[in-house]
């Protein structure tokens, strides 16, 4: 595996994709823009493991940060509040 595609601080957009079956990217965050908070490393792909397959190739897992106001049209109080989601590489694109 080459090094991680994104570095901490880089802006990323979550793919607004719809695919059938087991996926680990919540609906509410798809299509939203945030930043790479942390690179967790490479992990077996749960979207393959869920079907009894080997989970290979491994996918880089990132901790992605979002401003609450970016994720929800309406978010009450706490203008600096943030939301962090663990997202695998193949769900992210540069923003």
């Amino acid at each position: 595996m080459e090094g991680p595609r994104f570095k901490p601080g880089e802006r990323v957009r979550v793919r607004a994709e719809d695919r059938p079956g087991h996926i680990r990217t919540p609906f509410y965050v798809r299509g939203k823009t945030g930043w790479i908070e942390r690179v967790y490393g490479d992990f077996l792909n749960p979207e393959s493991l869920a079907y009894g397959k080997d989970g290979l190739p491994e996918k880089t897992l990132y901790l992605v940060g979002f401003d609450q106001k970016e994720v929800w049209g309406q978010y009450l109080a706490g203008s600096q509040d943030k939301l962090f989601v663990d997202i695998y590489d193949h769900w992210l694109e540069p923003a």
Partner: peptide
């Protein structure tokens, strides 16, 4: 009840962390 100045960081643990 937390004042607005306190930042809330929610973590949605969707993976293996």
């Amino acid at each position: 009840e937390l004042p607005d100045e306190v930042e809330i960081r929610v973590h949605d643990s969707t993976a293996d962390m």
